[in-house]
Design a protein around this nucleic acid. Structure first.
Lengths: 404, 404
DNA sequence: GAAGTAAATTTAGACTCAATATAAATATAG
DNA sequence: CTATATTTATATTGAGTCTAAATTTACTTC
């Protein structure tokens, strides 16, 4: 799809303004001279563009010019800064049984959040939209923000989403996630909602604030209950034609794996098996009900043989998973993420060790520090990306009286 | 890497010229009115741009205006056309034991070619460059073209190549392909040489003129002697961080596969095994030496039970290969290509059938019609892409006296 | 208050494209 | 053969953008 807009002189100003805004987003308060150096524009043009952007409220001019940077000779420079308060974005994690909404400013700083459990049996019901809307309203309230300030929303769902943001119902189950959320929130709130697969958002999130910071070729494996992955290649998400790229169902055919259960699930299952087989283990103290994954990890840390055996098996399994993915896609880094990542750090060394058996040039492996919030962090990043791409076309809400 | 060039008025002309040229490339002889409709520019601008491009020899103005398009009212329109003779590109396939060079005009029409066997033992020797240069010279001669007319060269090698065109010597063997071809041909010929992995070029080639025409998400599996694949996602090649994306070594771990031998290799091997086991088969007629893959395929076509059994095994194996790749990457189409593709058509139905067992939503499978030339076709496409991206910066050779 | 310095502003010039008006070339009707 | 309609080509004007150079402004330091 080539751009159909003909080249007009106004296009130049757009390009210039985009370059200036991009630089401002990556910097704190800057002078016109700074912008000139970064963009290559002349002073006259830079000033014109900045005043344009101030008028459109994407940046603000600071008053107390000399307070920055200590003594300086010559006429004091005007200073400009990104207007973080131009609006907010929402990042949503829409899980089977829980909805989380995070409010973020344009720099990515979290201003508020809200999280509420949801009855899994009502996953596909119409009430779901109202529920999500209510969680969003609560999150905005906790941030002291108005629904009118929302510039973009990104929601992560556990279903395939193609690159146009449509849920692809390849199986009936996925259809439950095609909630009609986008038209509904557009109509009632005026919000632009982007949908994305949760593992893909995990990849976006971890590349932004996690272990993969700044790495262009990375695979993030969500590994808690079920295995799923998000693939970034050359700094872009890989979606596939119907949004299911990163699906790991092929593991059914991989020796030593055979299914797509995640680390937390298997740790529980194998712990239960050990108890049933009357193996001597300190895990028994947590029984006779369900033994949680974290309990297995801490028992292993205490030297429990059964727990250590489970970790061994998990590490070998994950090495096979990482090995197959990394061979096919050649990422610079493979990240293991999700709620279980908080305790899965001890798996890192054995996974790395075993990986050598399965690949000729092993990829680097890391565990994400983002834990459970990896999806919402990615959703915020996705929404911010949208705003940054489209900022010159977006309408900002009128300033509230307090803003002056 | 943001563009560091500041927005200047000249940039506008560049954008306009790029849009006009892009349209011209996709069309035959066009009038200014056609260009206006396609680009949205005004008549005055369009004419100025066209005359610019004529002056720079990227397009030509036709003389016999009225001969096109039959009767038309009004003042006859000037007609412009892409100057196919502005230059040529070379597409090279640098194999272990053979070098092939194709000469193509800017529309992609093959003007000449040359192919010569090479002693495999000298693969890494310095003479290799001279050999390749000689094959290129022969190809140019057969096309009646001058080395000075070459605008770009793309060479496919059987080694990982990263997205910057550097051979990554992850194993010693690959290092043999880092011939220093690029600096050498730049110095002696002034040619810009792009290096690319052969399977990646196969993907480019098949998407251009093969079974995947126009499909943005496709995996092409080169399947003759060894299995390797090229991945396109969203219309771009997936390289990975060190160029080895598409590597299929993970198949060692896949049940029912276990290695990365290709169809031709396995057909030969299994045929030999059957002969050694004294199985009753018409294949014996081709022995006692080596039985070729094509002979197995034709024996199967005649109803030979042993040959049919081999096809059965091949189909199941390829279904597992396709299934794992397609699950992970979700392409719209998986193409089987390479020399063996000419006879592998009969495998298509059984592969498609068995694929249902291995994936929930099976990808479409096809066999490439490009056969052995799939790599050179892709190399030509790769070189043309380069020329099209950079045409406004490239210097064209001075017109020969005959050109006027 | 004068000197020094860096930022801001002004001015001139070049280039782009759009819009409008005018001219040229052809077909068709009478 | 002439008048008219149709289509394309060219010229003119005006607005918007940028650069570059000269000029003015604002502040610090001595």
């Amino acid at each position: 799809m080539p751009e159909l807009v003909p080249a007009t002189p106004q296009l130049l100003r757009r390009v210039s303004a985009g370059a200036v805004l991009e630089f401002m987003r990556a910097s704190a308060a800057v002078t016109v001279t700074d912008v000139m150096a970064a963009t290559g524009l002349t002073r006259a043009t830079t000033i014109a563009v900045c005043e344009d952007l101030v008028r459109r409220r994407w940046i603000v001019e600071l008053e107390n010019q000399r307070e920055f940077g200590g003594y300086q000779k010559g006429r004091p420079a005007r200073r400009f800064e990104l207007n973080e308060r131009a609006g907010v974005v929402l990042g949503m994690d829409i899980g089977y049984s829980k909805v989380t909404v995070v409010v973020s400013d344009l720099r990515g700083t979290t201003l508020g959040r809200s999280s509420r459990p949801f009855q899994a049996k009502d996953v596909g019901s119409g009430e779901r939209i109202a529920f999500i809307d209510a969680v969003a309203a609560a999150a905005l309230r906790s941030a002291g923000m108005d629904p009118g300030q929302v510039l973009a929303v990104c929601a992560g769902v556990a279903a395939p989403v193609d690159r146009h943001g449509d849920v692809v119902a390849t199986q009936e189950f996925w259809g439950l996630f095609d909630l009609g959320l986008r038209p509904a929130l557009k109509a009632t709130r005026g919000w632009t909602v982007l949908l994305e697969n949760d593992a893909n958002l995990a990849a976006l999130g971890d590349r932004w604030q996690g272990a993969a910071a700044g790495i262009d070729d990375v695979v993030v494996i969500l590994a808690s209950e079920r295995l799923g992955s998000g693939i970034m290649e050359g700094g872009r998400l890989v979606h596939g034609t119907r949004g299911s790229a990163g699906e790991l169902a092929y593991l059914d055919l991989v020796e030593g794996v055979g299914d797509t259960y995640g680390i937390a699930h298997l740790a529980r299952t194998w712990a239960a098996e050990a108890l049933a087989a009357s193996a001597p283990t300190t895990l028994r103290a947590f029984g006779p009900g369900r033994v949680e994954a974290e309990q297995v990890f801490s028992a292993a840390a205490e030297g429990d043989a059964v727990a250590l055996g489970i970790l061994e098996r998990l590490a070998d399994r994950m090495a096979r998973v990482v090995g197959t993915v990394a061979t096919m896609l050649n990422p610079e880094l493979v990240v293991i993420g999700g709620g279980v990542a908080d305790s899965a750090g001890v798996l890192l060394a054995p996974i790395t060790e075993r990986l050598k058996e399965y690949t000729a040039t092993p990829a680097r492996v890391a565990v994400s520090p983002l834990g459970d919030s990896i999806v919402t962090v990615g959703a915020v990043r996705c929404a911010l990306d949208y705003v940054e791409r489209n900022s010159l076309d977006l309408e900002l809400a009128a300033p509230t009286p307090a803003d002056g």
